[in-house]
């Protein structure tokens, strides 16, 4: 009924604007918002190359000397560079190795429960940690990690020592990754559980007739049935490899365990906001952001291609 405008000819632009004036007015606040709160800070990233001058407002982003890649080189030559990169990558890697399969396993386990009520209660309980604030969760972790806390009790039960786990660098990654799994296992299982629900039931029936047991059904029907979802979620998580946020780490770490817990984002926070090395910290952040961007774009491109061939 209505003509569709696809081509940006002069005539089309005029007609489209006349017809859709109200629509453009309705989306104007969003555009202003994105300029003010997304694009202005994005342009602000140039401060990684130009010395930021504080105290003179927005001019400060462009007023200083051109430094080029000096701050980036400073960072790469920094004694902490290797440690920050290692911690960031290792935390992501452990998250991938242990955190990625966990919700898949839970989804399979949930799907095999024959009692609806039990399953529903289990879902309700395992989703809960996802909605509780990081501050509360980290507060509990800090509490459990004391030498008089729960973790020491468990350690003592197995003949281990009673120690303050968050004061000892070698436990940080385990605590961070394990509590992350605890927080997200239920919520992340939803997408896999719904993929399992979508598997054609006749496949299971055929497997039963062929004499396969539960384990064989899981191996040969369930897992192949959700493999495309698994692959896409895996690729998307790889896209987040270099993106370890400061928010949770800053609640758990302290200077005595920086050796394993300090990551790029927490370093940026300390160098920038605390020590006010504005341009240096912005350059470090930008370094991280560019790697993130490349990873994310490639991951999305790959997952789209995989999605087209295997999902549809």
């Amino acid at each position: 009924m209505q003509t569709k405008y696809r081509k940006f000819t002069k005539d089309n632009i005029k007609k489209d604007f006349r017809r859709n004036k109200l629509l453009y007015l309705m989306i104007l606040p969003a555009i202003v918002f994105y300029i003010l709160f997304a694009y202005v800070p994005m342009i602000g990233n140039v401060m990684g190359f130009i010395d930021f001058v504080p105290g003179i407002g927005f001019k400060g982003f462009f007023a200083g000397d051109w430094m080029g890649f000096k701050y980036l080189r400073d960072f790469m030559g920094n004694i902490f560079f290797y440690r920050l990169l290692r911690n960031t990558v290792l935390i992501s890697l452990y998250n991938l190795i242990f955190g990625f399969p966990a919700p898949i396993l839970l989804a399979i386990f949930l799907s095999e429960i024959p009692f609806k009520g039990y399953k529903r209660v289990a879902q309700t309980i395992t989703y809960l940690p996802h909605f509780v604030s990081t501050v509360v969760i980290c507060g509990l972790i800090v509490n459990f990690s004391l030498s008089t806390g729960l973790f020491s009790d468990i350690s003592a039960m197995f003949g281990g020592p009673r120690i303050s786990f968050l004061q000892d660098a070698k436990y940080f990654r385990t605590i961070y990754v394990a509590s992350g799994i605890w927080q997200s296992i239920g919520w992340s299982s939803i997408i896999f559980l719904s993929a399992i629900t979508g598997i054609d039931n006749t496949l299971y029936e055929a497997a039963v007739i062929d004499g396969s047991n539960k384990l064989q059904q899981i191996m040969h029907v369930t897992i192949p049935g959700i493999s495309s979802t698994i692959i896409i979620m895996f690729i998307l998580q790889i896209g987040q490899m270099m993106n370890v946020g400061a928010e949770k780490i800053m609640l758990l770490y302290n200077p005595s365990i920086y050796d394993t817990s300090d990551v790029i984002s927490t370093y940026v926070y300390r160098k920038g906001i605390v020590e006010m090395n504005w341009s240096f910290s912005a350059a470090v952040d930008l370094f991280n952001k560019v790697i993130n961007f490349i990873l994310l774009i490639s991951a999305n491109a790959i997952s789209r291609r995989v999605g087209e061939t295997s999902l549809m």
Binding site: F37, A38, M42, G44, N45, F52, P54, V268, Y269, G272
Partner: peptide, 18 residues
């Protein structure tokens, strides 16, 4: 214009200063 901001954003420091 909107989706680009999901991929690439201002860093913590420029955002803070802005």
């Amino acid at each position: 214009f909107i989706v680009l901001t999901m991929y690439f954003s201002g860093g913590m420091i420029p955002t803070y200063l802005v």
